[in-house]
Design a protein around this nucleic acid. Structure first.
Lengths: 190, 190
DNA sequence: TTTTAAATGTGATATAGGTCACGTAAACCG
DNA sequence: CGGTTTACGTGACCTATATCACATTTAAAA
């Protein structure tokens, strides 16, 4: 089974679970398929799941009062996505998550995550390290924001995730970089 | 003992440890005192500790090729500081940590953290949630960077940490906000 | 106290990037 | 297939913020 193997390999990079432990862990996930354009988390709604991406590409994004969109994350296969602020603090979603392409995800509720972390020490180990890495990545992006201009950040992003270039429209890349689509267009046409 | 109680209260907000577990946990920390201006982590050096701030204020910061400084974090009492990228990936420090004021910290090695996480499940729980909160905070700051101008971010920072206003010089606040000290000065003098 | 260094304020000017407006091209859909 | 939406390019102009230069005020050190 494709999704199960994908998750297993992913977990295996950060933690060691026995086959029985992994099967138990996996039994708490619900497989879901979404189509391009479908919304997974809507601002204002309650959030009780996080999503492991098996295939496709999601985006998590914030829309401000002027309807400008800012992309927090492109979630590719083997990434996790949710509104973590809402999920951890049990508040309503402040950001949205939707599908840039058709996608297959594995959904885990917050309650099940906590239950699994309590029951299986190595699951907690996994989630600790997953977030450790996310935290470091967020700090790096923050630093790049302060230090580098749009062109540099664009090239940095494409170097790190070349597949984005063909997978997502440029105006979404602009929304990730925090510049207008016009500015992004000018970066490589002049 | 002051430092011990401070750490105990801090841990207690996120995890439940018995007194014996906490004493064992605490026995791995080394108390250190630093003076204003002293460096704790130097770029280029190996990093094997993280620091819990008992009193005083640290900053973690990056200096780019043009000698411009960017502050990643002001570490106040009850916060943790290190170069987490270097610490987690066992690379040389890319950022510096030093003391804005005299400071008392509790130092924990990475090896001890991992040992403790393995030995005491609730310690791993604590560190998972500590990083969860750090991750959410980093994402919020990222969003604020993209969405808000310098003035808004300045007011946001002071609302969240009013004590910074008197504790740290303005050019450091500017380095945290990612603007020049001149721009920050103009924000509130015109 | 005197001396020196660090922090802050402010004008003049430069620039990256934003906004608005409009045109074209490509993708999607009935 | 034609029509409609979505993506993209580009000119003209605007704005927030950077940079440089220098004065002033405050804090640290001797």
């Amino acid at each position: 089974m494709e999704a199960k193997e994908t998750l297993k390999a992913h977990i295996g990079k950060l933690a060691v679970l026995t086959d029985e432990q992994f099967d138990y862990f996996f039994s708490h996930f619900k497989k879901q398929r979404f189509q391009k354009g479908q919304t997974i988390i809507t601002r204002g709604d309650a959030v009780d799941c996080e999503y492991f991406v098996v295939s496709g590409c999601l985006k998590s994004f914030f829309v401000n009062d002027d309807l400008k969109m800012f992309i927090l994350q492109f979630a590719m296969p083997n990434w996790w996505a949710s509104d973590y602020n809402a999920l951890y603090n049990q508040t309503k979603a402040a950001i949205n998550v939707d599908c840039i392409t058709d996608a297959e995800v594995l959904c885990l509720t917050s309650a099940d995550r906590e239950k699994l972390c309590k029951e299986v020490h190595n699951v907690e180990h996994f989630f600790r390290w997953r977030t450790n890495k996310g935290f470091v990545a967020a700090q790096k992006r923050l630093l790049s924001f302060m230090n580098n201009d749009a062109k540099y950040r664009y090239e940095e992003l494409l170097k790190l995730y070349p597949e984005l270039y063909n997978m997502v429209p440029k105006h979404l890349i602009a929304a990730y970089l925090g510049v207008s689509r016009e500015t992004l267009s000018r970066l490589y046409h002049s």
